[in-house]
Amino acid sequence: MAIPVGTYGAAFGAASIAAGFSVLQTCLLSLLLFSGASQFAVVGVIGSGGSAMSAIATGSLLGFRNGLYGLKMAPLLRLKGFKRVIGAQLTIDESTGVAISQEGRGDDAARYGFWATGIGVYFFWNLFTLLGALGAGAIGDPAAWGLDAVVPAAFLGLLWPRLTDNKTRILAISAALLALLLVPFVPAGIPIIATALLAVVFGSREKK
C-alpha cells in the first residue's frame, strides 16, 4: 500500500507546486485536508484559473463521501473526544475500505485495519507530498516532465475502479462532455461543480 500512496502523494505535491501553491500550502493541504481526490481538485481548479470559491466547492463535494464513511465507521470505532477528532481525520477511502473488508474477521480486526491503514497512509501521504513539492520546485517547466498530464491521469486512476456498469460509464461520459461544453461560457471551476447536478439526476431517477 505504501508505494502507490507514495507515488500518488508525490504526484500531488508536484502538481500543487505547478498550480502555484507554495510548499507550505501544499503540505498543509495534505496535513489538514487529507483526502486525495479533494486535494487534487482544489489545486486543479486553482491551477486552471478558477476562484477560491470554485476550488472550495469542488473539494468539499468530493469530501462529502468521507462523512458517509464516518457514519459507517462510528458504531464500529465508538470514539469519544480527541480520539474522535483523530479518527475522523483518518476516515478516507483506504481506511474505510480496509475496515469493511476486515469486518468478517470480527470487530477487533476491522478496528485494527482502520487505524493501521489510516495512520500508515497519513504518514506516507504527507512524507511524499513534501518530497514531490520539493522535487517539483527543483525542475523548471512542468510540461517538459509530463507533470501537466499527471493530474488528469491521477483523476482517471481514481475514476476507473468506480466505472462498474453502464450507468456509471454513461454518467462519466456525460459529465466530461457537459464540463467541456460549459468551459468557454462560465468561469473556471463552475463546469466541474455543475456536473454534480448530473449525478443527482442520475441518482434520484433510479428505481430499484
Partner: peptide
C-alpha cells in the same frame, strides 16, 4: 446512490477539464 455517483461525475469532468482545456478554451 447520489453519494456514490457524485465522485464519478466530478472526477470525470476533472479529467476532461485538466486534459483538454487551457484557460477557457478546449
Amino acid at each position: 446512490r447520489i453519494n456514490s455517483l457524485i465522485p464519478i461525475a466530478l472526477l470525470s469532468s476533472l479529467v476532461a477539464v485538466q486534459a483538454l482545456t487551457i484557460k477557457q478554451q478546449v
